[in-house]
Each structure stands twice: as C-alpha cells, then as structure tokens.
Write a protein that binds this DNA or RNA. Structure first.
Lengths: 224, 224
DNA sequence: TGATGTGAAGCGGTTCACAGCC
DNA sequence: GGCTGTGAACCGCTTCACATCA
C-alpha cells in the first residue's frame, strides 16, 4: 500500500478491470493472474499490480487474485456501493440520448432529472424523465439530492451552467460541450469533446501515420 | 520544425486551438500571442509553442500569431480541408443520437449511412439517414466511400464489428462500446467509454479527493 | 515453482528559462 | 521591448526485473 495520490489514468483503468472481473465472474472463473486480467483489459500486467498497490495487497503470490474478492474490493474503492443521482442539463438531442443511455447503462447512476432553459420543454417529459427549468436547478437539485451533473448544452452556455451547478453543491461534472471549462477547486470536471476526437482522427487519416490503437477513455496503455 | 512523431495529446490540443482561433476570428482579432491563446484554451503558453513547433514556425517574434494564418495552417495540418464520409454502426439509441449529433456538428464529417444487424430496422430511415444491413457493410462502404466508422453496438459485438469494418478498408474508428478493442496495425482506433468516465467520477466523489479539473478529451494540461 | 509486490530504470510529455529575432 | 522557438530540467506514468512469499 502506498500513498493517497491516485491519477485519473489509474481510476479509469480500475473501472476497466472491474468490468473484466465481472466477465470472468460470469463465466465462473475463480482466480485470475495479473497476466490473464491484463490480456483481457489490454494492459501491461505490471500496470495492474502497480494500480492495485495503491490501495492494498489483494493477491496471493503464486496464485493470483480471487475474482470475487478483487471485484468487491474494486467496487468499494471506486465508490460503487451506492447509487448516484444524476442530472442532465440540456434536453436537446445529445442530452436526451445521454439520458436514455445512462438510464440503461448501470445500476450505479440513476438519471433523476433533465433541465433546460427552453421553457417550452419544461414540465414535459423527455425519454421518460421530467424536464425542469434550469433556473430552478438549485432547489430541484437539493430536493432530488443530485450529485452528478452532465452538461449537454451549447458551448456558449457551458461555463455558465457549470458555475450554477457547482454553486448548487454538485461536485462531479461531466461536460460534453466543446469548450475548455474552468471549474473551481474541489469540483471534479471531466470533458468529453466529440469534435476534438473526430478532428484528431482526421489528422491521422490525412497523415497516413502508423495508426496504432489508442484509447482516450478506458485507460489503455501505450500502443503495442 | 522537428520530427514527424506527434502524439495524440498534441493533435487533440491542435483541434482545441483551432476552435479558439475561430472564436478570435469571429470577434475580429487579427493577432494573438501564445499567452492569449493559452488562456482561452486552458493550457500553458509554452505548450502551444511546442505543439506548433512540430509543424513549422508560424509566429512572428515580438508580435504573436496572425489569427487567420494560423487558423488555415491548423486546418491543413489536421486534414480538415476535405470532408470525411462517416458511417455509424448500430442504430440503437446511442447510434441514432450520434448520427444526429455528428450530422449537425461539423461540416468536415458527413454521416452517410447507419448500419444494423436487426433486419427490421434495415431499409428504413433513422434520423433522416438510411439504415443498411451490417452484413452488407463492405459493399456499401465501397460505394459510399466510407472513411470513418463509429461503433455504437453492444460490447459483445464490438470486436467483431471492428474487424469487419477494418477488413473493408476503414482506417479510422471511433468506438463507444465499453470494451477494450484490438485494432490491427495501420488502423486508428479511439475509444470513448462513458461508463468508465462515470465510474471514475464516482471514485473522486467517494474519496473526497481534491478534485481539480481534468479533461480527457480536449487535451488540457495538468490541473492548475 | 509461480505469481505478487515493488524499487529502479526508462520514457514521454510538460514546463522552465533564455537565446534569437522582429 | 516583447514574443517566439527551443534545449534542458522536471515530472509523472509505464515497464522492467527481481526479491518475496504462498
């Protein structure tokens, strides 16, 4: 066990490991070595051991890791024992798609509300979720205990939305607006910029560069 | 001007710089210094100069960069002079949302077709786009000159889809399925894993860690 | 024996600091 | 004077190699 300074790369990978362990579990495997897990997660075995070493010693030398045991350790480490209430700001195309998506994906995140500043949408339902006026965010957020916000508004409004949302006490924000935002200290902001991703692909297409696989999310290591 | 080994971090940032330059351009600014651009892009000024140094010398000492000039250089560097034909595999919720989104976003990427293996969807239209049978991908891809594929199918099918798509000659793939995929050499694969992103947020929420802003896409530097 | 846990080496990206030029 | 371009320092993440232990 080491210090308490874990990088985002590491937490991303932990999430991937967890998913792999669930697969091993489903197929009835009892133990895995770091190499076996590494093969499935597309990482270096040492990477896995180093990542885990941040949190304790979970393996048995000469044997490997007990699938169920490591699985529940990771669930605990990632804070996935509880369910988080999630709000989506922006009930446009992307917002509603994300609502659908997140509504299904995991049991750990539950979409509780959508917000929009277009009052013609407010009061109605989108994809089965209530749409509230964004100006009421603070009060609704308190009532519904919203812990995570997803920003799906145009770039020009994104910073303003982030400010209001964090003002209301939300400490984790996922931003899909194509702008570099500035969050105040103590707030975790993740930006996923679909345009940047595409334009970056464009570069490699036009360069005819030796395109090796790269994962932006999911924390896969250097290309093989 | 340096070598020809540019990292993905760099190309992501170039895309961000370009967007910022477009904003400067729109507001009529003629020249920017690396510091001004850095402020808008949320990066270190030296980072910008280093990034650009990979491709040439575009600035004027004592002055800065001419907005229009640098803008068109970046467009050329990123290969954004042409339009790419894009196909989306998987006409489910996420797939159709992405079709809508990408259909609007940029003039540089044009959604030309959706594919699905559910034959009840095939032949119809989703969001204004034709839906083809995925088994016909190779022939349709050739006819429509598809250059970029977006994978929006369940994780269990993703590797198979990737294989078929690259077999058909597609060299740039964006993967939204939550699985670590393996692409053959010469193929650029970018994975965006929405579940991993959320679970990573969960970690920081549960740790009450000092959450500083982090951007996965968009290539923003270390937190301030 | 075999796989973990870990110090040390390696590597790449970021930042600094300053020389060079307008 | 001011800002770019860049070698060098810095820093952090990844990988190696091996001591450690069931």
């Amino acid at each position: 066990m080491k210090s308490r300074k874990v990088s985002e790369h590491t937490t991303n990978r932990l999430s991937v490991y967890l998913r792999c362990l669930r697969e091993f579990s489903a197929q009835g495997t009892a133990t895995v070595s770091s190499s076996e897990l590494a093969a499935r997660a597309q990482v270096n075995p040492a990477q896995i051991r180093k990542d885990l070493a941040n949190f304790g010693e979970f393996g048995v030398r000469g044997v490997g890791y007990f699938v169920e045991g490591l699985k529940s350790h990771l669930i605990k480490i990632l804070g996935l024992e509880k369910t988080y209430n999630l709000a989506i700001i922006g009930a446009g195309r992307l917002g509603t798609a994300l609502a659908d998506y997140y509504g299904l994906v995991g049991s750990n995140f539950s979409v509780v509300a959508l917000f929009d500043s277009d009052l013609s949408k407010v009061g109605g339902k989108v994809g089965g979720f209530d749409v509230f006026a964004f100006q009421d965010f603070a009060s609704v957020a308190e009532k519904c205990k919203i812990e995570v916000a997803v920003i799906a508004v145009p770039g020009s409004k994104a910073q303003e939305v982030l400010d209001k949302v964090t003002q209301a006490g939300v400490r984790a924000v996922m931003n899909f607006a194509p702008v570099p935002l500035k969050a105040k200290r103590g707030v975790k902001l993740k930006t996923i910029d679909l345009t940047v991703s595409l334009e970056s692909l464009s570069y490699f297409l036009s360069e005819k560069g030796t395109g090796d696989a790269v994962a932006d999310e999911g924390g896969i290591g250097r290309g093989a």
